[in-house]
Amino acid sequence: MKNSNLLTELLATWEETYKKGQLTLWIFLSLKDGRKYVDEIKSFVEEQSEYTMTCESQSLYRTLRKFKHVGVVDFETGTGNKGPDRKYYFLTELGHDLLENFIQRNINLFFNKRIKDLINKEE
């Protein structure tokens, strides 16, 4: 196998594993940005992740129902654009605390100077 092909395949496999579970972070970030309805969350996730993350509306609804059930997300009904009323989702206090703790423990590591330097270091 050519090196470039191998690189592409390895990258795709790593990314597939890496992205599992990331949707939660992107959903939380989109709601930290402000209350949104499902299509807006979908657009936020796709645009802000530069289309490395994609999600189906149905899968988002299912995920949001689970988050609502455990109390990290809630919704309020707002008027839609000509159509029926929409559910505008937002993070609850528990949701905000959860995101803050998750970021502190798992994301802020990447802002550590040594790690940042390593990421930017050229071979």
């Binding site: 599992k20 579970g21 939660t24 689970k66 059930h69 455990v70 109390g71």
Partner: peptide
């Protein structure tokens, strides 16, 4: 589970 939802599937 947490609130009846499987911990394994909650943040999948």
């Amino acid at each position: 589970s947490i609130n009846g939802l499987s911990k394994e599937d909650l943040f999948e």
